[in-house]
Design a binder for these strands. Structure first.
Ligand SMILES: [Mn+2]
Ligand SMILES: [Mn+2]
Ligand SMILES: [Zn+2]
Ligand SMILES: [Zn+2]
Lengths: 147, 147
DNA sequence: ACTCAAATAATAATTTTTATCAATTAACAC
DNA sequence: GTGTTAATTGATAAAAATTATTATTTGAGT
């Protein structure tokens, strides 16, 4: 809840540094990605911007996310059921805990992850570059509602 | 590399127990899922069966996987780039190590996973039901080729 | 052998993402 | 400030993956 502003500035600066134009559409998309509240989908981002920017095109959202992804400034989370979701606040791999009832997403601190990475490297002889770790379950709110 | 036969029998039996018909198409699909060599995609399964079963329909593969998934006998692995892949040999969650060069998939033993699950439960107050853990990197074969 | 609900095959529809391209515009030079 | 130009946008078509539909076929019980 502190470095939203930073993330926004960092992404814009990276776009500038790589010679990309700064358009109002792009700014609107980056603004949402920098917060990434609830890990939005492309559709989420599109709908939200369309409210006060009715000319926004869905293709523009897709193209900008592709660009920002190529700069390493947004993390893409794919799910089997379709529609990817994005995190521009933490663009590096990190674990998520997802409630299968209400779709809430929480980000736990896991000290044991680095050790696990080394364990995998030693066992498989892979040079590990990144990872994906999700836990699925029921959050405490939903457990209370259920009874 | 031992229990392919078992997995085949188990899945067929489960289908029977739940009142589903045993068709030649279904048998062919289960046969491939029971092995799940290389974690095949729907397309992989379809192409492989089509060779000696030319009337096989892609929709039939999809529908059977949906059914077997609903019986908890196959694990679905989604990736951001599209096409899901399947594991009917180990239908429960387990970690994968994926080479981003040659797409090879390895299954490491990770002792630290159970502890991590508890760590997450305590920290987030979620009731964790399942998880997804993938490591991405370069396998030793590909590293040798690269230099 | 007969019956019938379930499964298959073929195909249409849907969903998500990428490609195409004419029109617009941000960034730079002057 | 004006002009130039290549990047970007918006609209839409195309592609790719999955699900739905439906007439036809068939497995399994009687
Ligand atoms: Mn996140
Ligand atoms: Mn597996
Ligand atoms: Zn919940
Ligand atoms: Zn490799």
């Amino acid at each position: 809840m502190t470095d939203n502003k930073d993330r926004y500035e960092i992404i814009i600066q990276k776009l500038r540094d790589n010679g990309h134009k700064i358009t109002p559409q792009r700014l609107a998309i980056v603004k949402i990605l920098a917060k990434s509240e609830g890990h939005p989908s492309v559709e989420d981002i599109y709908v939200q911007i369309k409210k006060d920017f009715p000319t926004m095109s869905l293709a523009t959202v897709y193209k900008n996310i592709l660009l920002i992804k190529s700069l390493g400034e947004v993390l893409e989370l794919g799910f089997p059921d379709g529609s990817n979701r994005y995190d521009g606040k933490k663009p590096y791999p990190h674990p998520h805990v997802i409630c299968i009832k209400c779709r809430k997403i929480v980000e736990p601190d896991l000290d044991s992850l680095d050790g696990m990475k080394k364990e995998v490297s030693l066992e498989t002889h892979f040079n590990i570059l990144y990872h994906r770790l999700d836990f699925f379950g029921i959050c405490s709110d939903c457990r209370i509602k259920e009874r």
